[in-house]
Design a protein around this nucleic acid. Structure first.
Lengths: 207, 207
DNA sequence: CACTATATTCAACAACTGTTGAATATACAA
DNA sequence: TTGTATATTCAACAGTTGTTGAATATAGTG
């Protein structure tokens, strides 16, 4: 036996991967069950309806991610941080998730991108867990730029959020455009350059 | 009669809207036909398979958008442009599309966002029409930053592309986070702030 | 052993899916 | 008028969808 993992988790893992690639409507429960080598009815037994399964997949790592983010922000709090440090702290949990080497996390980040960019899922799923942490991040930005208009700060976060979402999606487009000089899977470089890029943009618009 | 539009175009319009919201797998041909007040078989008569219909929807405005982009770039060529001007020229076709006031264009831009962020569709659809213009844009950036590493320029474009994609998606998230101080539908402000933001980021990373 | 809660399978349901071929209608040219 | 190309409808197909209830197995407890 290669790995001793229970069926319930295997269903979650497979669903996570397939949903992240094909989206909610692009995957059937039967496909998930088949890939997980499990009977169709078993997915229903554990998770209920298809929507609940999707929710369960999303929730599993969402809370963990949000908690890490809160922890990092609290740790750095009151330290008179620079703009670069604030941004870095915001990105750190994602960096950590990827650095575990767990392919499940990589799939989840792609799923997160799918949810972030979908007009339907965004409202339903992002609000519950992530919006609170984002508001804290925006508040930290406001402290750094006390004279900036709220709207400008929010638009800047929007740009950063978009850049992040496309990174997490791992579409392979940057590989194609750069003739393989850059890799969609190279999160390290993506984060490393993102920090000074976003900091400069913020200073320009809000400074 | 309120509007005299032929059924073929009406199918395209409806498909464009529904695909942009629910994605390819989230919409059935029957839903499209029903919303277009047309028989199911008629969609097949005009466009063939479902995949061909999706392709037709995507292609209809893609070429127009790419052509406008090329035209703008050519017009501005050899004018010793500033970085801001180059970025503005790149965004101009999208701005123009939105300023027509045609809701169809708005739907299409959301569909474009869906394609840009999907690992599956990206490869298949973005390459044919858009990648060429993007390469020209990246080349223009290289002229401005002749000493910058190729990879850095590509990553910067990646960030810009992500910010753009999330804007086109109109998810409503910025409305929620900013307590309605900002609007997802406010493309004018989004573009206006995006230019200095991206220019500053580029200068920081590539300058 | 018997009892019980959990886990898993099987078979089936009604609804919906994309697609098609034949039948019918419409428009237009000769 | 007739002939013909285009447009539109209708009915049906085989396959897939999410979901469920009953049957069976398994594991753990007394």
């Amino acid at each position: 036996m290669t790995q001793e993992i229970n069926r319930k988790d295997r269903i979650l893992d497979v669903a996570e991967e397939l949903f992240s690639i094909h989206g909610y409507d692009g995957v059937s429960i039967r496909q998930i069950a088949s890939a997980a080598e499990v009977d169709v009815a078993l997915a229903n037994y554990y998770f209920g309806k298809k929507l609940d399964l999707f929710q369960a997949v999303f929730d599993r790592r969402a809370q963990l991610l949000s908690d890490t983010r809160q922890e990092v922000l609290k740790r750095e709090q009151g330290k008179q941080q620079s703009l670069d440090q604030v941004i870095e702290a915001f990105l750190l949990p994602l960096k950590m998730a990827q650095q575990t080497g767990d392919p499940g996390w990589r799939n989840y980040l792609a799923l997160l991108s799918y949810v972030m960019t979908s007009p339907i899922w965004n409202k339903e799923l992002m609000g519950k867990v992530f919006d609170k942490r984002v508001s804290e991040f925006v508040a930290a930005l406001k402290e750094i730029f006390p004279n900036a208009q709220d709207e400008k700060i929010h638009w800047c976060y929007h740009y950063m959020s978009g850049a992040l979402a496309l990174t997490l999606a791992q579409t392979g487009r940057i590989d194609r455009l750069s003739k393989n000089r850059c890799r969609s899977t190279d999160f390290d470089t993506a984060y490393e350059l993102m920090v000074p890029f976003m900091a400069a943009g913020l200073r320009e618009v809000c400074g």
